[in-house]
Design a protein around this nucleic acid. Sequence first.
DNA 1: ATGGTCGGTGTCCGA
Length: 267
Amino acid sequence: MALRVATWNVNSVRLRLENLRRLIAAAAPDIICLQETKVEDKDFPSAAVTEMGYPHQQIRGMKSYNGVAILSRIPFAEAGTRDWCGRQDSRHVFVVLDGGIEIHNFYVPAGGDIPDPEQNDKFAHKLSFLDAMTGWFEARRGEPNRFVLTGDFNIAPLDTDVWSHKQLLKVVSHTPVEVASLGRLGASHDWVDAVRHFIPPEERLYSWWSYRARDWAASDRGRRLDHIWVTPALEERLEGAWVLREARGWERPSDHVPVIATLNDGS
DNA sequence: ATGGTCGGTGTCCGA
């Protein structure tokens, strides 16, 4: 059985249920990883999501900010959440599927505006968070390692992951210090970037466009902040991956669009 | 060079 995984920074799940239906109609994912759900667990729209065909839900939310969820057609063998950097921030949930594939959904801190950890606590937190992730995954090397690492990483690593590499070098999300941090995380398991496995690095590709643009599509000043990575053990099972750009043009859009990857059954 | 827009613990703060 193939496995299709979608990740999407939904920017308030309660406000975006109709768009969630559109994502399901457009891509038919087996598993949907959401970030910025912005809702406490007791108020999560679980019944509506179950009706959409996703009765298995691992959620971790808080009021107003952050919040992550894994919504699934497939039952979980295990599921959990984890705190990072000593905060109860609702930035990580994970599940293990029967057969051992482990899916980690992260909402990495955005990092504020000033790309200097001395001046900006939010940027310091972002770098610490990435270091902690790296250490945690490094400690798990040597296991069977059929992992999917996905979510809003809030970093566009490649020059072609932003509309202007030069103009964004000092803009949080594309600074060399963050890209280097993400590179260390990437080296922790030699993670494979599922989308770039299929779409060459020469091609510009974005998953986020600011709300502030007059015309997001015409100016097309985007960044690729949302990612799906797999461990090398799953690389040969990658069947396809893409960005659902059209979702940015939907009514009441999130500023992020879904990113999707399909793994075949390995036979 | 600046400011532009969303969402929600809404008239501020985080993105």
